[in-house]
């Protein structure tokens, strides 16, 4: 299954929130939706899930206009919340049934997930008696119990301890392996880097960058050198370099071809401990595309 957003526009009153957003997410691969606060991620998710219509553009599934009666979504919203005063099992059942499951299947599935996420003992407790992390696990069940085609997880790892984060990772990986489209929205770049094959960086309502994460990294201009030396200050003065840590400085070259000669130069003139070509992290890419540089 492939889901494709084509030129999605959306305004609220005078404010243009999305301007021609397009990207493609494929089944069996995780897709990371990145962007700063207020970039328009939640609006994209809501349009995708038909909470409200877009002003322009299309959502396509395998090339055809999406039919919301045949495609099912699972959603873990960033603002977590269920009914705090109600029994956990009752509300899980309610949401599963709202998603169109019949009662028998819903009960079976909820039992499975409670077991899987080690939450069986809480099934008859009220939600507000649970810790934040456990509440989050319950919320996750509402997103996946009905076996949706597309799973949308907004900041799924926030508030989880390392053991629970591990448990969630396994579940997410399993969803991906099962061929589902998993859409991540997160500010925690390490998780996106770990899971996502494709990303889209949303900035000011536009797609600033989208594609295969490995490709993006590979195509990142290799014109930067990380240098560690006792003579950092001298090198900085000579090459107009900047500090990137206490020990390392970063030299940005006009073009990548200069690399060899600059490295040779540095090795001859200074006492160099270490020198390497700069490999950007997703964080660096994000800051570059979603920062306030313009």
């Amino acid at each position: 299954m492939i889901i494709e957003l084509k030129n999605i526009d959306k305004s609220f009153g005078e404010k243009e929130v999305l301007k021609g957003v397009s990207f493609t997410a494929k089944g069996g691969r995780a897709f990371g939706l990145l962007g700063r606060n207020g970039a328009g991620k939640t609006t994209i998710i809501r349009i995708l899930m038909n909470v409200f219509p877009s002003n322009g553009g299309q959502v396509l599934i395998d090339g055809n206009l999406i039919d919301y009666n045949t495609v099912s979504f699972g959603y873990l919203p960033e603002e977590r919340g269920l009914y705090p005063k109600k029994k956990i099992f009752d509300q899980l059942l309610y949401f599963a049934e709202l998603k169109g499951m019949d009662k028998k299947d819903a009960i079976k599935s909820i039992e499975y997930w409670l077991e899987r996420l080690e939450m069986q003992e809480y099934r008859n407790k009220r939600l507000d008696t649970l810790s934040k992390g456990n509440q989050q696990k319950i919320q996750l069940i509402t997103a996946i119990a009905h076996n949706p085609d597309i799973v949308i997880l907004d900041e799924p790892f926030s508030g989880l301890d390392p053991v629970n984060a591990m448990l969630l990772k396994d579940v997410v990986k399993e969803q991906i392996r099962n061929g589902k489209i998993v859409l991540f929205s997160s500010h925690q770049m390490s998780y996106i880097e770990e899971f996502c094959d494709d990303i889209a960086i949303i900035h000011n309502g536009k797609v600033a960058l989208t594609g295969d994460l490995i490709e993006i990294k590979r195509n990142y201009p290799r014109n930067k050198l990380v240098v560690r030396s006792k003579d950092n200050d001298k090198i900085k003065a000579l090459y107009n370099a900047t500090d990137i840590s206490e020990l390392d400085i970063l030299i940005t070259l006009q073009n990548a071809e200069e690399k060899a000669s600059v490295i040779k130069d540095l090795a001859e003139k200074f006492d160099i401990d270490e020198i390497k070509v700069f490999e950007p992290s997703l964080n660096d890419i994000f800051v570059e595309y979603a920062g306030d540089k313009e």
């Binding site: 809501r46 899930m49 909470v51 979504f73 959603y75 919203p77 603002e79 977590r80 919340g81 269920l82 009914y83 705090p84 949401f95 709202l98 998603k99 919320q139 509402t142």
Partner: peptide
């Protein structure tokens, strides 16, 4: 206020 609405609007 409990934000159950976030999930409800996508479910019903």
């Amino acid at each position: 206020s409990s934000r159950a609405m976030e999930l409800l609007v996508t479910s019903a």
